[in-house]
Each structure stands twice: as C-alpha cells, then as structure tokens.
Amino acid sequence: MRTPLSVVIGAGGTGGHIYPGLALAEALRRAVPDAVISFVGTTRGLETELIPGAGHRLHTVDMIPFDPSLGAKRYLLPAALLKSGAQARAILKEQGAHVAVGMGGYPSAPVIVGARMAGLPSIIHESNAVPGRANQFAARLTNNIAVAFDRSRAHLAGGQNASTVGMPIAASLAHLDRARLREEARRALGVPDGSRLVLFNGGSLGAVRLTEAAVGLAARWRHRDDVHLLIKTGPAKLAETRQRVAYAGAAQVASVVPYLDRMDLAYAAADLVVCRAGSATVAELETVKVPAVLVPYPHAPGDHQTHNARVLSDAGAAHLVPDEETTAERLAALVEPLLADPSRLAAMSRAAGPSTHAQAADLLAAQVLRLSGLPELAHISRDLEYTS
C-alpha cells in the first residue's frame, strides 16, 4: 500500500507568509490529492485563524520573534529555538513527514531546525526582496532555497544556488481575468455605474496611515459621483472608520469593510489600489496587473517593503509614496490626474510585464515533491515543472 505524501509547512505571523503557504498547500493537493498537509505556527499570529479556516491542521510551537527590539532578552532566542525545534521534530515524526517547508517568519524557523534534527529534507521560500531574519538563519540549515525575487539571493547564505520561482499565490488570482470578471465584481462590491474605484488595502490587519488618508479623500470627494472608495480597515478600526466617513458626509462615495475574502473580485473591480508593499501583495499586483500606489510599512525589518515596492515602481507599474508623506492631500495630487487619464492607468497596467508568480505555487510544489524521495511522485514533479 502506497504511503501518502506528508508535508509540514512552517508559516505564521502575518498574511504575507501564511497566504503563500496556503497557495503551496493548494498546489500540492492539486498534484497529489491524498497528500497530508499540515502547518506549524504559534498561538500569537494570524495562522490561528487563516490556516484552520482553510481546512488545514495547525500545530503550534513555543517560539519568539527574531526581533532586535527584544534588547537584552535576545539571549533567550537560542534556547527558544532549540525548544521549538525539538517540538517541531516531534510534530514531523508524528506526521510521518517526508519534507519540511519554511515559508519565512519566525514561526517557520523551528520547522527547519526540527527537520535538521530529524535528518529530513527541507526547503525554504523567501518571499521578500530583502530576506527576513528567520530565513537568513534557516538558509544556513538547508541546501534548498527558493525565492520570489532575484534580488534577495545576495542576502542569503547559499543564495547563489537558489531557484527563483516567484511568489505562490492563490489559483483564483494566478488565473484572474480582470476584464471578464469586472462587471460581476463591481456589482458584488456595490460600485456605482460610471465610477472609478480606488481600493485601499492595508494588509491583513489594516493600516492606520492608509485609513486616515482614505477618510480624508472621502471627505474631499464627497460631492463627486465619478469616484468611489473601498476601504479595508481590519476589524479593530471598522466602526470608528464608518462613523468618521458618515460624519464627513461621504458615505455615498466610500464603502468601509473589515476584510476582503474575495480578492479576485476586489482586484477585478478596482481601477487603482493604494496599499502596503508586502511581498504577497506586490506579487498579486504584478500578476493581476492593477495599477497601484504603494506605501511601504516604515518599520518592516531591513526596510524590505520599500525594496518590494521598487520591483513595481522601477518598472512604472506603481507609484511609491513614503509612509510619512501619505496624506489625503498628497494622494489627491497623485491619484486625481491618474483617474482622469485612463491611458496612464492602462500604461501602468502594461508596465507590470510578465510575471512568474502565477506558476510559483506549482514550481515550488515540484521541488517539494522531488525532495520527498517518493519515486511514484517523480513524474508529477517533472510534469509540474514542464507545464509551468
């Protein structure tokens, strides 16, 4: 009787690490329907909601962030890593894992440590243009490295041998036909006919700076009937933002939502996106070719969001605006001329150019299948690489 493929994926903290991990799991299940996929994270991040919500088992370990702000408490990191690595090794054994995958973020490092302890093959995927500390560490423990952007190679031990696969994204976005879905999407999101839609997407938990600017724009545009704002706030700021929009007399030009569970609809309906520059977001924008204004999170380790944003801004597919300059007035000066000139928006869309991200989940899945050492999966791995 054939032993089912078992893969354990370390991913947690923020959506930027979790969503690519889920996309990889989706690709593995497409290729090997009876594969056993489980995740490792902690009890503190979004993984506690997103991973079970996607139908996958989540194991948790005791791990602390790779964070210099810990100060003197940084001396706790080696002990925490050894403890969580041992916990991960026990999970890998329990799951009968063939391969361990680290998608970045501090919850994924113990999986690579545990795989090293157990003598199991492992692979890491780095999603940012400038790697995070967890993957900089984990890269020293595995010979198998995949990256989303070529420019991250120089920052990883063994990066010269890394394979650039792109960023794994959900199939609904990898194959999105914006034009075909546009009318359905605008109806679903309540976008008035004849209005151009500006989507404010602050990431998994929203972004106060973007929400502030969006409310200011809504007040500025409150008498217009040719523009509409869709503002994603995150649950914590939902009620307050709705009250502020109503108080500004701008409810007719702005819709406020806590989250967007159908990003394919949001991207299909949008004429312009104003958002942070997390690696997953940048990969999605490059793939679906929506013009964007990117506002990098200023406290991201290594300023990696600015480096991510430049992938699109250098190509002319996005405008980069520093966080401290992101006000309603600054955005109005930039956005109003864009909305008034469809040809400029179309040029930005074309500038995104070809993207590897649509095939990234399958390419990474092919590497995982190859590392599994299961001979019956070799042809599936080759097929995924060939068709991608």
Rank of each mutant, 00 (worst) to 15 (best):
Val99Phe: 13
Gly96Val: 07
Leu81Asp: 08
His98Ile: 06
Leu82Thr: 12
Ala109Lys: 06
Ser84Leu: 06
Leu82Arg: 13
Val99Trp: 13
Ser84Lys: 01
Ala90Phe: 10
Ser84His: 01
Val99Lys: 01
Gln95Val: 12
Pro110Ile: 12
Gly96Tyr: 07
Val101Glu: 00
Gly104Phe: 00
Ala86Ile: 08
Lys93Met: 05
Gly96Glu: 11
Leu82Ser: 10
Gly85Thr: 01
Leu82His: 06
Ala86Lys: 14
Ala109Cys: 12
Gly96Met: 10
Val99Asp: 15
Gly96Asn: 03
Gly85Asp: 06
Ala100Cys: 01
Ile91Gly: 02
Val111Cys: 00
Ile91Tyr: 00
Ala100Gln: 05
Ala90Glu: 15
Leu81Gln: 09
Gln87Lys: 02
Ala90Ile: 05
Gln87His: 04
Met103Lys: 06
Ala100Val: 07
Ala97Trp: 14
Lys93Pro: 02
Gly102Pro: 05
Gly104His: 02
Gly104Gln: 02
Tyr106Arg: 06
Gly104Cys: 03
Leu81Gly: 12
Ala109Gly: 04
His98Thr: 12
Tyr106Ala: 05
Val101Asn: 03
Pro110Thr: 13
Arg89Tyr: 08
His98Asn: 13
His98Arg: 13
Ala100Trp: 07
Ala88Phe: 00
Leu82Ile: 10
Val111Gly: 01
Ala86Leu: 13
Pro107Glu: 08
Ser84Gly: 03
Leu82Gly: 05
Ser108His: 08
Val111Ala: 10
Ala100Ser: 08
Val101Lys: 04
Val101Trp: 01
Ala88Arg: 03
Leu82Lys: 11
Gln95Asp: 14
Ala109Asp: 04
Val101Pro: 03
Val99Tyr: 05
Ala97Asp: 08
Gly85Pro: 02
Arg89Ile: 00
Gly96Gln: 06
Lys93Asp: 14
Gln95Thr: 06
His98Glu: 09
Gln95Asn: 14
Gly105Tyr: 09
Gly105Asp: 10
Gly105Ala: 15
Pro110Tyr: 02
Gly102His: 00
Ala100Lys: 06
Ser84Glu: 02
Gly102Gln: 05
Ile91Asp: 08
Ile91Phe: 09
Gln87Phe: 04
Gly96Phe: 01
Tyr106Cys: 12
Pro107His: 05
Ala90Thr: 04
Pro107Val: 07
Pro110Glu: 07
Pro110Gln: 10
Leu92Ser: 09
Tyr106His: 12
Met103Ser: 09
His98Gln: 12
Glu94Lys: 14
Val101Gln: 05
Gly105Pro: 04
Ala90Arg: 15
Gln87Val: 00
Ala109Gln: 12
Ala109Trp: 02
Pro107Lys: 06
Gly96Thr: 09
Met103Val: 14
Glu94Leu: 14
Ala86Gly: 12
Lys93Asn: 14
Pro110Met: 06
His98Cys: 10
Leu92Arg: 10
Ala86Ser: 11
Val111His: 04
Ser84Thr: 03
Pro110Ser: 11
Val111Lys: 05
Lys83Gly: 07
Leu82Trp: 05
Arg89Ser: 09
His98Asp: 15
Ala109Arg: 03
Ala109Asn: 09
Leu82Pro: 00
Leu82Glu: 07
Glu94Ser: 15
Gly85Ser: 05
Ala97Phe: 09
Lys83Val: 07
Ser108Asn: 08
Ser84Tyr: 06
His98Met: 07
Glu94Arg: 15
Ala86His: 11
Met103Thr: 09
His98Leu: 11
Gly105Gln: 09
Val111Ser: 04
Ala86Cys: 03
Gly85His: 00
Gly102Phe: 01
Ala100Phe: 01
Leu92Pro: 04
Gly104Lys: 01
Ala90Leu: 12
Ser84Ile: 02
Lys93Arg: 15
Ala90Cys: 02
